[in-house]
Computed example of a mutant assay.
Amino acid sequence: MSTGDSAAPRAVSAADIAGRPLRYFDFVMAAFVAILLLSNVLGAGKVAVIDLPFVGLWPFGAGILFFPVSYVIGDVLTEVYGYARARRVIWAGFAALLFMAFMSWVVVALPPAPEWGNQAAYETIFGQVPRIVFASMIAFWAGEFVNSYVLARMKLVTGGRHLWARTIGSTIAGQAVDSLIFYPAAFLFAEGWTTGLVLQVLVTQWALKVGWEALLTPVTYLVVGWLKREEGLDVFDEATDFTPFRTGV
């Protein structure tokens, strides 16, 4: 078992539990989708600042504080429940993002009542640039699947050992794909964005997200260990079809 618990859960192939209901899977999926949506709604629109020693004031997107938690939960899903169930959750998150973008567009576009004076503020918060929305959704989809695939493959190679290496290694790969897609697609050649600035923000955000994942490793160990004990299973993707274009478990 990855957490080193003496009462190890039973190691099973993902195919052995295909279609089987599991006790906490739905709750983990709900947490993933909720954090994904909230980090995009509440965090994406604000640029915060932190005073770093020897550096000074450093701006950052507020969403970075919570969006990486979705990657942590993605790691937990793959490690505990296997790639197929993580794949199903990624598609659920993608569909939720798509609906959120559509709902935001419709609500912002509705003519406001004459006595309601908050339309400008509403547009500032919820009005989304289509290019950025598209880039965000594609980057999320690709990055999460790379993250899940790398973790599942590393689990087979390591025989379920060294959870920290799998979570950090998969995040390095997944966040790299996410950042390499999102920042160029969203900001390259946009007004006020030079190529150098896009690359600087890309590398900075990638490093911060990976660092955040590393800091949360003890939490990941606790959650993974508890869920494996409660479910009584340790899932290995020995005969899994790793295509991302399915939703069955």
Rank of each mutant, 00 (worst) to 15 (best):
G61M: 11
A139K: 01
E231H: 09
S6F: 12
L188P: 00
L42Q: 04
V49R: 12
L36A: 02
F102N: 07
A14T: 09
L77R: 09
A96E: 04
P184C: 03
A139N: 01
A31C: 13
G117C: 02
D241Q: 11
V201Q: 13
W206E: 08
A190P: 00
G192Y: 06
G160S: 10
L98H: 03
L199A: 14
V89M: 13
W58C: 11
G45D: 01
L42D: 04
L180C: 05
F94P: 02
Q128N: 07
D178R: 00
A11T: 06
M29W: 11
G196R: 09
K209G: 02
P244D: 03
G74S: 13
E123K: 14
I17H: 08
G19R: 12
T78D: 05
F102S: 12
R23E: 14
V108E: 12
F102Y: 13
R87T: 01
G56S: 08
S70P: 00
A48R: 12
A48Q: 13
D75T: 01
G169L: 08
S148R: 04
A86L: 05
D5G: 02
I50S: 14
P114H: 08
V106A: 12
G143S: 09
G174F: 00
D237Q: 12
T240K: 07
W206S: 06
L197Y: 03
I17Y: 08
W141C: 02
L216W: 08
V201K: 10
G192E: 08
M154I: 02
A7R: 15
Q175W: 01
V108K: 10
G43H: 02
V55N: 06
T124C: 00
T243I: 07
V224P: 05
T204S: 14
F60S: 04
A34Y: 05
L57N: 11
V69S: 11
R161N: 09
P21K: 11
M137I: 14
L37Q: 06
L199G: 11
F245K: 08
A207I: 14
I17P: 02
V235F: 10
V89Q: 06
A142P: 00
L163P: 01
I64L: 15
F245I: 07
V72N: 07
A101S: 13
A8Y: 04
V12E: 14
P218H: 07
R20W: 09
A18F: 14
I138E: 04
T194D: 06
V28G: 05
W141L: 15
I35E: 03
E231L: 10
Q119T: 02
A48D: 15
A92N: 04
F94W: 14
L110K: 10
K46G: 01
K209D: 03
V198S: 04
A135R: 07
V235T: 06
F25H: 12
Q205R: 07
L202S: 14
L97E: 12
V89K: 10
F99N: 09
A113L: 15
I181M: 06
G159W: 10
P111T: 05
P111S: 08
A48T: 10
S70Q: 12
P184A: 03
T167S: 12
E79I: 03
A18G: 01
V76W: 07
E213P: 00
W212R: 09
A31D: 07
K228A: 08
A11S: 11
V235Y: 11
T158G: 03
L57R: 15
L65G: 03
L52C: 00
S104R: 13
I17F: 08
V150P: 01
